[in-house]
Design a protein around this nucleic acid. Sequence first.
DNA 1: ATTCGTTCGGTTTTT
DNA 2: CCGAACGAAT
Length: 777
Amino acid sequence: MNNYLDELNEQQRQAVEYCDGPQLVIAGAGSGKTRVLTYKIVHLLNQGIAPYRIMALTFTNKAAREMRERIEALVGHDIAVQLRMGTFHSIFSRFLRANAERIGFKHDFTIYDTSDSRSLIKLIIKDMQLDDKTYKPASLQSMISNVKNSLITPADYERHQGLRDADNNAGRPLTYKIYKAYWDRCRVAGAMDFDDLLFYTNILLRDNPDVLERYQEMFQYILVDEYQDTNFAQHLILVQLTKLHNKLCVVGDDAQSIYSFRGANIDNILKLKQVFPTLKTYKLEQNYRSTQTIISAANTLIEKNKGQITKHLFSENSVGEKIQVIKCDSDYREGFIVASKVAAIKARQGSRFSDFAILYRTNAQSRRIEEAFSRGGLYNTHGNIRDAIPYRVYGGLSFYQRKEVKDAISYFRMSLNPDDDEALRRIINYPARGIGDTTVSKVQHCAMENGVSMWQVINKPDTYGLKANKGTLGKLNAFVELITGFIRLNIEGNDAAFVAKTIIERTQLLSILLNDNTPENISRQENLAELINGVTDFVEAKQEEDDENILLTDYLAQISLMTDQDEENNDGDCVTLMTVHAAKGLEFKNVIIVGVEEDLFPSYMSVNSLRDIEEERRLLYVAITRAKSTCILTYTSSRFINGQTKACTISRFVKDIDPVYLDLSNAGNEALTPAQPKRQHIEWSPQVRQAYTPTRAPRPAVQSVPIRQTAVAGNKNFAIHSVTELSVGTIINHSRFGEGEIITIDKSGADAKIQVNFKDVGPKTLLLKFAKFEISQ
DNA sequence: ATTCGTTCGGTTTTT
DNA sequence: CCGAACGAAT
């Protein structure tokens, strides 16, 4: 591995080679940022830095996984696996578990997800007898999140005159008390929310010099991706950790900062030089991803924002097609037009469905697209109905958020940390065991008064003066016994798969679902089965690596920070549907951005503040720059929202783009009247303007015809097979990809791999230890 | 205690 | 339109 520097352009190479001090790399969209990070890590390894002394922080688990894979290809598995790579949340949650007692938590602390903390906040508001219209749980939640990200404790908040005044003026003077109560209940429950993971990491490092020194010493070099989307708490962790070696490389693009609602602070980038006076700044300005037209259009859009680091993104790729703007009569029609576009472009390019992404501002918009896709869009030119378009929706409810799965996980959580009140409240009467709302409220109240968890109360009802009749006490006791049994399973050191299976058996979570076979129930059964499979897979995969007994606590620690984005996406060849936020860091040959309308994109929540509008504009910038060759914007004149059809108008952002880069032949009149006088802008590639060909006439409108969706195949005996059962030419039937023929078998690595040519989705490489299929012949 | 029906209100993006 | 939340009936 000695020629990797040759694969970089001058700027990239400089950024990779400079390793002597703090460094900021401003990396425009598609400028090879991941490549720089990857090679930089390889470079550090070549300089003799031990892999476990390099920390690389990414925005999603998926990004970390992909980067690790790329590095693995260059330096091998044994080295790559030692790198500390992951999200802030996942890496530092491990530090917190290792040092939990220093901050008054137990090793097995629970991580509350967003809905857990929401429900706790609701409870507190109710308990304080406050009006939930004045004290809206959702806004309190985001307020609490914001103050935590600014490292403000409840005590700080109470003393903070500015915050208190603001609350008083807003008619919510008791906000500080809710924050305090929420804080206290989390501690009693032995639980941290997402923001606590960062908050307590700061506390841990601040208050324990020995711990800080150990980590400072350990991590010789720290790299951070997507730095524009870090918040103050994350920033401060870095500042603390890099004090000793002073070696840090942050990569980011202020023009792509889209997470300020989550506390992301653009000043982290803009003012980095003040914190690290010896900071060296590098800029990557050549885009390798998109056509010149796409880059130029995006540049004219983002120019309308004020206050950013000067940067001139350019592309030397082909000029490419104009960005099409398409007006639709309704959101319903929009779906069909998008489906037809996908089919037409795919046929023209001879590309795959996976070359397409449909991006939208809000998750709710996916519904209409899905409906149209499953019907295959409109008639094609021969009047035939098209086949359904396969798609995969990212985002929305993750697997672990589904009711039946979360119920099971709540039992898992209780078995490790019975003080976890949110888990307890969920399952104390599910399956029904005669402990109703009245009893739960009493326990709840009693727990709050005594400053203990609900588990403590039901464990020692007399000690805490719980008033309940004999029958109720008996039922509570039975529940305590049940959970105690589960706790024991873990103490005895059983592995995660065994404990999980035992819990699901003893609670009858699965068996009660077997009683009636409504489609809904069948899907629940499958999800529970999938959960058990997931635990089993997890245990097996982990055991391969470090041969230890894998405990339930390890499993929970892993999944509590997993999101829908992180799930495997090998569903074969399909179109990607996701929010623009979720598309950050990704690229597609063809991108269709739907719902480019006022009050939707930009969101109506943001129209009152210039700051927010600029973030929305960056969001569209991010969306457009995902596209390599084709980009289409659609908007509708009416949209069905919350049971009502509402009139819509084209987004102001379309008018921010220089029309010279737009194909407006299907865009309606609104798009033709510019919002502002046409202005000069900097032209990065002079040849762009001349290169346009006249656009074709619009497609004639055609009618949509609803057709039935074909049902999915029934149950099969999919299983994991060993390499000895297989040979080249074997026909298998895979649980997800269907039928295919084995082309190669690779036994060389630690894990046997097979390559299979699937009838429907083409060739795929499968890891034998995970692939579920049956052997057909 | 549970279930069913009605009303009401929200309504962005996510580790 | 959807889900949560509340009230009434079993």
